[in-house]
């Protein structure tokens, strides 16, 4: 990974895309232990970010739909 953007600056799609690439790299050719560890660490950071963004999105949806303004009648 040459261009290492700080994980927290990535949006969900970019993070997932990079995570996909990392997983493919780890699954593919044999890496040196050092390289594999670096990839894995980056992968974990990306996964953590993705999970966090998903949790936040779901919470946001639930909050938005919980605001039930439609039931009040005059």
């Amino acid at each position: 990974m040459v261009k290492e953007t700080p994980v927290e600056k990535l949006d969900y799609e970019k993070a997932l895309e990079e995570l996909d690439a990392i997983v493919s790299a780890l699954e593919g050719d044999e890496q040196t232990l050092e390289a594999a560890l670096a990839l894995f660490e980056r992968g974990q950071e990306l996964a953590k970010l993705c999970a966090k963004l998903l949790d936040e999105a779901e919470l946001k949806v639930q909050q938005l739909t919980a605001e039930d303004t439609l039931t009040e009648m005059e």
Partner: peptide, 13 residues
Amino acid sequence: FNSLYNRLNLSSP
């Protein structure tokens, strides 16, 4: 995401 995450963990060093 989960399936990718599982693959990541399976391919851990």
